[in-house]
Design a protein around this nucleic acid. Structure first.
Lengths: 262, 262
DNA sequence: TTTTAATACGTTTATTTTACGCAATAAATT
DNA sequence: AATTTATTGCGTAAAATAAACGTATTAAAA
């Protein structure tokens, strides 16, 4: 939606294309060099930030909808994306009047008022998805109704609209718990990577430290990674070896789980 | 809904009370004496069985809706109940014509046809919840539109309506994975229970064996259970001691997780 | 050549898990 | 009353895993 005309059409006829009462909210975790951030957006004329989200088209699957919304925001495809919870308990979701006021602030940009009968004024449950991206790869495409974007550190999230703080909390718990069981987030590494790189990835996402030497032993023992003959040049220090994933073990671990057990 | 009149009102005016496009499906696991079963229902005039489910009232939270639906089916309250996934990918959910035919078979009982514009004919996503009950406690209340009920062993589930087989598969995976992390299912035991009782509970739900002696050591080491002075009389064999939960450790384990690690 | 800061590749110790052995006991059987 | 049977209680030894840590190697700069 890039023009006033498109937004007006969405407000008045969106319910023909999208399912009402349901939205998707995306917690997009952005990892880069020892930092884990979340993409937030600020809708027009709002002071509070929100999670990026969208609606489910009537003719697409739920997974397609989530992928499309994620791709719209990041311009990236085939990202790691997982559903984690559906939110329908918060008072801010039940209070239609409050939700309508929030929408009216946003849509004031196109001079339209969401009345009680508008489909956007309905009570809406939200299906939460989380994604993992390298935030240095993301190119934000400005959206008509969004004033600002930012990457905020997971430990420094401000008070957000609706129940979005709770959504982030649940997403982070899910991500961390799943990362202990499955080889998640490996799409954040290049094809060939060094031990310090994958080590930093784990430490950052899980928010704790791992002994370098035990970490290496564990991944090798699980057969998840394979050491290559090549080394990487990294400035003034000893050159670390490059590793690659053993794709068979990797995919088996994704399906059946491979307990890291640190 | 017990009468034709109530059903007709539901078909024609249900969208005023309930959110369209969304349903809740409940996988009700029934445990009893070394058996784990799932409650299935057969809607009027159908050959295939389904999961029990329902809709979300406009003025209740998602959790309230799931609890209400579960209580309606089992006549039991305060059961262990958890959301596990929202389903919106299956072709049987996207194909509105197919879904409408299924509804028409059911509602033929009251001589009404669901037309294309009826709210029940809309595409519907389903939020999956699972519950754990002692099936010997359950008193099924007959419903007007349901011809038959049954408890089927988890290892012997027939082909069900829509994507309900997939929903059960996901529920079972979730239940088992969560049971390794948290003290789940303890509401299936009496206040004071014996080691063989809790041992059988774990073996049955997780579908594998645990060494009796190591199992006891583990639960005691975690501080989850406390041995009492009392013993239980069990016919012709040695009297087992009774145990109770340490409620502090128990609740901490529910929140923070306590890895069983067998 | 020495220094610095990083990686590589161990070894040792502690802890946890797994596999069993065997005595105790309640009631039925001889 | 002793024996048998099926079960529970409690322990120990071995194996596997996790945690802690030592030290040589290496790349480049001082």
């Amino acid at each position: 939606m890039d023009t006033t005309h498109e937004v007006l059409d969405f407000v008045h006829n969106g319910h023909e294309r999208y399912l009402p009462h349901l939205s998707i909210d995306c917690v997009i975790f952005g990892y880069h060099q020892h930092q884990l951030k979340i993409l937030l957006i600020r809708y027009h004329a709002h002071s509070k930030w929100s999670l990026p989200g969208g609606f489910i088209a009537r003719d697409e699957t739920l997974t397609q909808a989530a992928s499309r919304i994620l791709a719209d925001k990041t311009q990236l495809h085939n990202l790691f994306l997982r559903q984690f919870h559906t939110f329908g308990d918060s008072p801010t979701r039940l209070n239609e009047l409050g939700a309508r006021q929030v929408h009216n602030t946003t849509y004031s940009k196109v001079g339209v008022t969401i009345d009680q009968n508008n489909w956007l004024a309905d009570r809406t449950l939200s299906i939460g998805y989380y994604a993992l991206v390298d935030y240095s790869d993301v190119i934000i495409k400005p959206e008509f109704l969004v004033d600002e974007y930012c990457w905020r550190d997971v430990n420094d999230i401000p008070s957000l609209l609706f129940d979005h703080n709770e959504i982030i909390e649940t997403a982070l718990l899910t991500l961390r718990s799943q990362m202990y069981q499955q080889p998640i987030g490996y799409n954040l590494l290049p094809e060939k990577f060094t031990l310090p790189e994958i080590h930093a990835l784990y430490e950052t996402i899980l928010g704790r430290q791992f002994d370098r030497r035990n970490f290496r032993k564990k991944l090798l023992a699980l057969g998840l990674i394979r050491q290559l003959a090549e080394q990487k040049k990294i400035g003034p220090h000893r050159s670390p070896f490059l590793y690659e994933f053993d794709s068979e073990t990797y995919h088996r671990a994704l399906e059946e789980g491979a307990v890291l057990g640190f």
